[in-house]
Amino acid sequence: MIFQPAIIALLLASLVSAALLAGAAPYALEIIRFWDLRSGSERQLALERRTYLLSTVASFVFATQVVALLLFVFNADRMAAMIVGAMCAVGTLSVNNFGFPALISQIVLFFAAVCWLIINHVDERSPDYPLLRTKYVLLLLLLPLVLVMAALQFRFFLGIKADVITSCCGSLFSEENEKLGGALASVPVRPAMIGFYSTLALAILAPLYYRWRGTGAYVVAALSALAFVAAIVGILSFLSLYIYEHPNHHCPFCVLKPEYGYGGYWLYLPLFSATAAGLGIGALQPFAARPGLSERVPRLSRRLAGFAAGMFLLFALIASVMIARSRLVLLG
């Protein structure tokens, strides 16, 4: 293991998160089983008090995980300097078999955490806790994910050996590579570009339409997820080439480096927040028809839709500016 402050901090964060959530789980179960708002029993009063603690703990854990994703990527990029053969985060993450699974679980957890926080927000704003059971069931469902993420992170960080030669992004995302990374990198430029912009356009228009007419929430969520995939494919297949001004460099992580002005953060922050907001609209939709929520949910969803559209637009604009400013000519 490499003894690195950021690693210690990340491990601390996931350990505390896992412990807090695991500690909260029995109480969540109790609330799911015995919650009855109409009852005035002593147990119900205790549960009502406890739910404040549980939702605070869970909000704290999930907010931590949202920040931890950023720290994880930041740290992986920085650690490349210490690992033989690594030029960027890719090298760090492929130093053993747990790097990419850890990253992916962290990303999945990020989106799940944001959805949970949105549902929690709605629930706390309503006087009669309409989503209480749902949110604790979700919390119990998310607990294994947090545990898996923490375990993967531990395996990854404890298994890092500085003398293992890892592969650099050049080999993982090269067109000759047969695996997923290579396959995505070798998507031809013109179709990828068309797919990229058309999906993004849909992902911008759908939330705007939702804001206007109030229908199509699931479409918005699906298109957001699709736009996320299309954006990643676009970054791999052509956007990276424009940024690096190099016809064969397909890495989605090198953009995070200072050499490229930390441009990656400008791309990924809007992309991730837009996708999270879009998914949040879908996560809220099942409850839109519930009595007491028929006004609150659409109002919040409209706001989220505006945010998602804005962020996708920002992402598309930043990507376009990067392409326009590049001196590389791919389509000529």
């Binding site: 950021a6 601390l12 605070t56 930041f74």
Partner: peptide
């Protein structure tokens, strides 16, 4: 930036975690 973020996790995070239950 990484350092500031790490430092934040080392100080504010434990503080927040420690005060959750007492606050409640």
């Amino acid at each position: 930036g990484l350092q500031v973020a790490t430092l934040f996790f080392f100080t504010v995070f434990p503080y927040a975690a420690a005060t959750l239950v007492p606050i409640w």
